[in-house]
Amino acid sequence: MASTNVTLTVEPRGKPIRNLPAEIEIALTASGEELHTALAEASATSVHRLRITKGSDRSVVPNSTRTTIQDTGLRESSVIHVKDLGPQIAWRTVFIIEYLGPLVIPALFLFPLRSLLYFNLDKPLHEASETQLLVCLLLTVHFLKREFETVFVHRFSNATMPARNIFKNSAHYWALAGFNIAYWVFRPDAAAATKQPNMGLVYAGLALFGFGELFNLNAHLILRDLRRPGTTERGIPSGFGFSLVTCPNYMFEIIAWLGIFLVSQLSWSVLFFIFVGGLQMWSWAWKKEIRYRKEFGDKYKSKKTVILAGLC
C-alpha cells in the first residue's frame, strides 16, 4: 500500500533562513532524518545547522532514521519550526583541538620557553629534573592516547556542535591541563624539580598511571562496540568496571591522573585539575545513569555510585 503523504507548514524560528520553503510534502513513513535532509537541500543549508521542532509543543523532531514522521505526531497541515543553529564544527575536530593544547604545552614550557617563563627566578636556571621530564612524558602519553582514541576509537552520537563552543570546550584542557600544570610542575623550585624525589610516590604513580590508561582504553573500546558505525543506537555496557560504576572510563581516567599527581610529588596544580575534571565527570555520569535507567528499565542494574566505586 502506498505511503500517505502529508503537507507540513514550515516556519523559521529566530533569524530567517534563506530559501526555506513555506511548506513541505513528506510521507508519514519517512524518517526524521529524511525531513531534515529535504529541508537542508531546499534551503541550501548544512543539515547539521538545522533544528526542527513541532509548533504544537516545541518538542524536537530528531534527525534520526529510527523516528518516523508518524511517530512524532505530525499530521496534515502541522506546523514545524526550523532554526538555524549557526556555523557548526565536527565533534571529532573539537576533541582533536581540545587535546592538542595540553599535548604540546608541557614540552614547550619545559624546553624552549623555560627561560622566558621563569625570568624572575635566580639565574642560571638549572636543567629540568628527571622527575619533571617523567611528568612531561606521562602528560604526552596521556594526550597522545586521547588523540588516538578521538581518531580511531570514539563514535559520536552527534556529528557537530556550534563552532563558537570550541573556545569554551578547549579552555578546560588548555588552561588547566596545559598552562596550569606545566607552569607549576616545571618551575625550577617545584617539588618535582628535586634531584632526590620520593621514589615510593614515583613507583606508585607509574603503576596507577599504567593501570588507569590501559583500562580506560578498554572501557572506551567496550563503549565503542555498543554502537554500530553510522548509528546512535546504544546497548547496555558490560565488562571490567561496568558492574561497579556507571562510567568506569571516568574512574580509570581519575586513577591515571592520580598517578601523575603522585609522580609530580603531590603538585597542587595536578590535584586541582583532577578536582575540577572530577566534578564535571560526576555530573556527566549521573546524567548517563539516569538515561540508562529510563532507556533500559528493568534490564539495567542501577548503580549507586557513578564514577568512583563506593564514593560518588
Score class of each variant (00 low, 15 high):
3 S>K: 13
10 V>K: 14
12 P>M: 01
13 R>Q: 14
14 G>S: 11
18 R>E: 14
19 N>V: 00
22 A>V: 04
24 I>N: 07
25 E>H: 10
31 S>E: 06
42 A>R: 12
47 V>Q: 15
57 D>K: 11
57 D>Q: 12
70 Q>P: 03
70 Q>T: 09
75 R>T: 15
78 S>V: 12
80 I>G: 08
88 Q>R: 15
88 Q>L: 12
90 A>P: 00
91 W>V: 10
92 R>I: 00
94 V>C: 10
94 V>N: 05
97 I>W: 03
100 L>I: 06
102 P>G: 02
105 I>L: 13
105 I>W: 01
105 I>T: 06
108 L>H: 01
109 F>N: 03
111 F>P: 00
111 F>C: 00
118 Y>H: 10
119 F>W: 11
126 H>T: 13
134 L>F: 07
135 V>M: 12
136 C>G: 05
150 T>G: 04
151 V>D: 06
152 F>C: 15
159 A>D: 07
161 M>D: 09
165 N>T: 02
167 F>W: 13
171 A>F: 15
179 F>M: 03
179 F>K: 00
186 F>E: 03
189 D>H: 11
189 D>E: 13
190 A>D: 11
192 A>D: 07
199 M>P: 00
199 M>E: 05
206 L>E: 12
209 F>G: 12
209 F>L: 12
212 G>C: 12
212 G>R: 12
217 L>G: 07
220 H>L: 07
221 L>A: 04
221 L>T: 04
222 I>M: 00
222 I>Y: 00
227 R>H: 08
231 T>D: 05
233 E>S: 11
235 G>Y: 03
237 P>I: 04
244 L>K: 00
245 V>H: 01
246 T>K: 01
247 C>H: 09
248 P>D: 09
251 M>N: 08
253 E>M: 08
254 I>W: 13
255 I>G: 10
260 I>H: 06
260 I>Q: 07
261 F>H: 14
266 L>H: 11
267 S>Y: 05
272 F>N: 03
278 G>W: 08
281 M>H: 04
283 S>G: 04
284 W>R: 00
285 A>F: 00
287 K>W: 00
292 Y>H: 15
304 K>V: 14
308 L>R: 05
312 C>M: 15
